[in-house]
Design a binder for these strands. Structure first.
Lengths: 114, 114
DNA sequence: CCGAGTGTTCGATGAGCATCGTACAGTGCG
DNA sequence: CGCACTGTACGATGCTCATCGAACACTCGG
């Protein structure tokens, strides 16, 4: 069934995955990409719901960017919400950390990527 | 015949990478594979230098197995040594943990892979 | 109601990589 | 020495995935 609650948006709601349902392999695969790593780290440096998808400084086009956010949602790392014409993001810190303790901290603490 | 000293082996020594020189992306990429994850976990359940490469229960041929160990070495996760005709392995727990604190523990503690 | 801005979807493309089979190179045992 | 065992090197193959361009959908401000 569609879970389209209140009758505000006529837009396809982003599909989220609960971190509890994410396998270790899925989580690691989602993190093993430089673009997604950058997204997560930039997101971690901003307040929740303040960054739209297009506001990130990554060297890929819109289509690829949309794909990356889809992967991040599927790994339980990012939550999205439609706000006007934009889709704003939130890093699921607590939830993801409960499933994979320390992993997110490790990613954010690292000083070099490549 | 007892153990061989420095001048004994005429065999190509395995190329190792110090965990300190491993990037986060390289580490995550190495871990984001079910076969390698299995190798690491099986290795963690055995004493150091007791497991030869062929002694692991993974559904791949010799060639692929050799490749996986090469990746694990390159990520600073595994150390290898030639012992007679076999190549025995050791999980670099302390060293890798010093570079990426908690990551290895997380991998080993996880109860499901996929 | 139109147009600018934002993001998704679709099909195609290219690169990387996991895998295999085979040939090759050491090692040690009989 | 010759042979079984172990692992690596190499070339080929097939699949996954990151990316792009273009078309489409939705929102909001004139």
């Amino acid at each position: 069934m569609a879970n389209q609650t209140e009758g505000g948006s006529h837009r396809a709601a982003p599909v989220h995955t609960d971190p509890e349902d994410v396998s270790l392999l899925t989580a690691l695969s989602a993190l093993a990409d430089s673009v997604r790593l950058t997204l997560i780290r930039e997101l971690a440096g901003s307040a929740d719901w303040t960054r739209s998808c297009g506001s990130f400084d990554v060297p890929v086009g819109k289509a690829a960017l949309s794909h990356h956010f889809s992967v991040l949602r599927g790994a339980g790392l990012v939550e999205q919400r439609d706000e006007g014409p934009k889709r704003v993001n939130r890093l699921r810190r607590e939830e993801f950390d409960a499933r994979f303790p320390g992993l997110l901290d490790l990613i954010l603490r690292a000083d070099d990527l490549d």
